[in-house]
Design a binder for these strands. Structure first.
Lengths: 156, 156
DNA sequence: ATCCAACTTGCATTATTATTCTTTATAATG
DNA sequence: CATTATAAAGAATAATAATGCAAGTTGGAT
């Protein structure tokens, strides 16, 4: 069954989870059936993945689906990077296109991981020792902005 | 058994999901074991719930845990409300402490649901008909701000 | 000290979600 | 058309997560 139906179905799905508090895929199967669209849980699972829906924790302990097309991953990694840098950055120095970031002993890998995961523009890669991280930037110009960005996030 | 360990365990849990890409609770059980903290999947599940961790969809299709204490619910409902109002509000009128919002036939309940879920300050409650929503505000003063807010969101 | 109530946690089980495998339908191509 | 390729979706199943229950623990209050 090639579909003219799929887009409409996913649209309804979105509407359903936006306007109701849905906490299981079987609920969606039923809700959609009542709207005249009959599908199986398997299809709902795939649709939810495609529209990027996730389950969030409700205050009352029940979890509900939401669509939230926020650049979530992005936002959160930056938040995280800020926390990490703020907590563990001792100093930021540089030379040419290299940036050297110092941390407390043993913490370099944690910070480097956060840096890698945040994908900073202009950064080619990082190498972490025990208390030092070497950050390789594309060129001197990029290095300037990278250093500025790092210091800002670190609160230096 | 041991209760002095719980806070530390949850802290480690947080760190683990922040610095790695974890996609299943069993992974966490193993990771924690390698850090010297031995727990079962059941405990991890409960801890994740307590710290509010959720699973988000990675671009590559794999889902990873994240802690993100975003005012997510808040943000999204306002976003959603804006979308809904923008799409279905025909006009906003009022009288004393009552606001009357008109929508296309059959859409009133959708809009009312969005309104209810966004919990607007000063609104006591709503009643939805087929194409009309009656919004009861606390008093005339509140009504003024509610009307302004609604029109703004609706783009009127 | 003894008891009680509120917590924690593991185990076992259930509930929920993701995926594999297969079938069918639609489109594309010669 | 016939044929092949591709996308979709269901059924069954595997994988993952949540939970009921019972067994400790702890920190008071009596």
């Amino acid at each position: 069954m090639k579909s003219t139906k799929k887009p409409q179905r996913q649209h309804l799905l979105k509407r359903l989870i936006e306007t109701n508090s849905i906490s299981a895929q079987t609920q969606l199967v039923e809700a959609m059936a009542s709207k005249g669209i009959q599908v199986t849980q398997a299809t709902v699972a795939r649709d939810l993945a495609e529209i990027g829906a996730i389950k969030v924790r409700g205050q009352n302990g029940i979890n509900v689906y939401t669509v939230d097309e926020l650049p979530q991953k992005q936002t959160t990694t930056v938040q995280h990077l800020k926390r990490v840098l703020g907590e563990w950055t001792i100093e930021v120095k540089y030379s040419a296109n290299l940036v050297v970031l110092r941390t407390p002993p043993g913490s370099a890998h944690v910070v480097a991981s956060a840096l890698d995961r945040s994908g900073i523009q202009g950064v080619l890669g990082t190498v972490a020792g025990d208390d030092t991280i070497l950050i390789v930037t594309e060129n001197n110009l990029k290095r300037v902005s990278v250093v500025k960005y790092l210091k800002e996030l670190a609160g230096l």
